[in-house]
Write a protein that binds this DNA or RNA. Structure first.
Length: 511
RNA sequence: GCCUGCAUAGCUCAGUGGUUAGAGCGGCGGCUUCAUAAGCCGUAGGUCCGUGGUUCAAAUCCACGUGCAGGCACCA
């Protein structure tokens, strides 16, 4: 049997929101996760996609004079185009409007209905007549809705017995079988589970909303959001379509998402899976928001960051680096032009790109363009070597923790040690002294290994620039990361390939 | 209203009882030229939110207060 693949997901994004910094961040994060696991020799299955049913999509389509299908085709394509532009390579881009997904949703619903996990009941509440939606008392108060627009009505609907699953979910979270991170979010979920867990309304009468997946046991209704959207994670893994694929993909190893939809994923989704008899995902990680000037980005304030503009100006790799390096997953973090430039110029240009330049150049000038054979074994002891040799022990754990800011910091620490080593050894001076050939060889070998290892380590975050740096050093970009991290892999005699400056200074004033 | 978390250098943060509290960035001074006006060295800068307590010893544990963030308050 094929080995289990590492299965990482983003949420499927609602088509009526255009791709923005939040969705771009989540998707890039998932791509980085996928690349690290691939770099370490694992099979990977990376899913993203679009959520396309529901009132907003139907309304928007009607306004444009399009069928919902045509409207969604167009908006879904916008996400695909954006991800392609950002160089993201999901293994599957799922759409909730795919026929195979409807089949999965209906099969699960039919099964739950047959086993009494779904029942019909009456919902009574305030209905907003012109908006054609039910509103809560909280919403009425907060949005100061005009009472004359509200009507008290009751409606028959179908409910999923979510409350039954409370203890099982709690047990899964407490035991760590369902690992929710960061810990503060896990506590939040456990707090939520302390109280009674209600059942979940999962339907809408077609008379009110027809753009959805029909309930298999009542053709007058479609299912509402939860089963429709969440089951994509199993559809995309081959559930009820390809048993072999499902077996090597599910359970998901990592559901990534913004903190806004944590409850949905850590309560509703596990409840659905438990009721359906499908194993739970292993881990849920909720990340924070990108803030601007200390506050949330908002369209009305006009302070929304367009990540594509940064990718266009500085390159996709630079955007990925900023996302990975600047935000500790789980915390809110500020996105500013100043910080972006500091990361680009400081980390990428000065520490990494510049060290690559000076190393390749010195090998060209003082070693005939080939990686010299060190006099001392592996170039002798040195600070960069000490730093590098600690990496294999910590990197896998950092990947597992989705702690890419720490991986970035570790790479920078290595590069800083490399830059110091240049000053300590001063190869350009030693090269003038015929008796110091061994010193030059050791220094240049040490520097080349330093940059090679840092570049290999960073390649999953910067999938263009990392391999480019490795090629300039004559190293193999396809080498397994665990192997590439080993000091001494660089073979004496390897020709360096001087190339373009890795991160040229960009003078554009604003992205 | 209830619950949780956080509060450390100008900025972002590390530091979960034990010598003069650390890093990166930024500031200031110097050195250097292999390199992308890059690099290196040195240096300044902190009542570790406040008050009280536990302890031989507290940024670190406890209580209260203040501030900020978040969750819940029967959101189909």
């Amino acid at each position: 049997m094929d080995p289990k693949a590492f299965y990482v997901t983003t949420p499927i994004y609602y088509v009526n929101d255009a791709p923005h910094v939040g969705t771009a961040y989540t998707t890039i994060l998932a791509d980085i996760v996928a690349r690290y696991h691939r770099a370490m020799g694992e099979q990977v299955w990376f899913l993203t996609g679009t959520d396309e049913h529901g009132q907003k999509a139907a309304d928007a389509a009607e306004k444009r004079g399009l069928t919902p299908r045509a409207h969604c085709d167009e908006l879904s394509q916008r996400f695909r185009d954006t991800w392609a532009r950002l160089g993201l390579a999901p293994d599957v881009f799922i759409r909730t409007t795919e026929a195979r997904h409807a089949a999965v949703v209906q099969a699960v619903l039919a099964d739950l209905w047959a086993r009494g996990e779904i029942y019909k009941a009456t919902y009574e509440g305030w209905y907003h007549v012109s908006d054609e939606i039910f509103v809560t008392e909280k919403e009425i108060e907060e949005k100061k809705i005009d009472p004359s627009k509200l009507k008290r009505i009751s409606e028959e609907n179908y409910f999923f017995r979510m409350g039954r699953q409370r203890d099982a979910i709690k047990a899964a979270v407490t035991s760590g079988r369902l690992d929710i991170r960061p810990e503060s979010r896990r506590n939040e979920v456990l707090g939520f589970l302390e109280k009674d867990l209600g059942d979940l309304c999962i339907s809408r009468p077609k008379a009110r909303l027809s753009w959805g997946i029909e309930l298999p046991f009542d053709r007058d209704y479609v299912t509402y959001v939860w089963f429709d959207a969440l089951l994509n994670y199993v559809t995309g893994a081959g559930y009820r379509q390809d048993d072999a694929q499902f077996a090597r993909t599910w359970p998901a190893d990592l559901h990534l998402m913004g903190k806004d939809i944590l409850t949905t994923h850590s309560i509703y989704w596990p409840a659905m899976l438990l009721a359906a008899g499908i194993p739970l995902p292993k881990r849920i990680v909720a990340h924070g928001w990108w803030l601007v000037a200390g506050g949330k980005m908002s369209k009305s304030v006009g302070n929304v960051v367009n990540p594509l503009a940064y990718a266009d100006t500085f390159g996709v790799d630079a955007l990925r680096w900023f996302f990975a390096r600047e935000m500790a997953v789980g915390q809110d973090t500020e996105f500013s032009d100043e910080r972006f430039r500091a990361r680009y110029d400081g980390d990428l240009g000065n520490e990494w790109g510049n060290l690559l330049s000076r190393t390749v150049n010195m090998i060209g000038r003082f070693a005939g363009g080939k990686l010299p054979r060190p006099a001392l074994a592996l170039g002798g002891p040195s600070e960069p070597r000490t730093v590098a040799e600690a990496l294999p022990k910590v990197v896998p754990g950092l990947v597992d923790d989705v702690a890419f800011h720490r991986i970035g910091e570790a790479a920078m620490e290595l590069l800083r040690a490399g830059n110091r080593h240049v000053d300590v050894t001063q190869p350009w001076k030693a090269a003038k002294d015929p008796g110091k050939g061994p010193v030059v060889a050791d220094a240049l070998y040490t520097l080349a290994e330093t940059v090679r290892i840092a570049s290999a380590l960073l390649a999953p975050i910067l999938p263009t620039k990392g391999p480019e740096a490795l090629r300039q050093l004559g190293a193999d970009p396809s080498l397994d990361l665990r192997r590439a991290l080993a000091w001494g892999v660089g073979a004496p005699g390897t020709a360096v390939v001087p190339g373009a400056v890795l991160f040229p200074r960009i003078e554009a004033p604003k992205a």
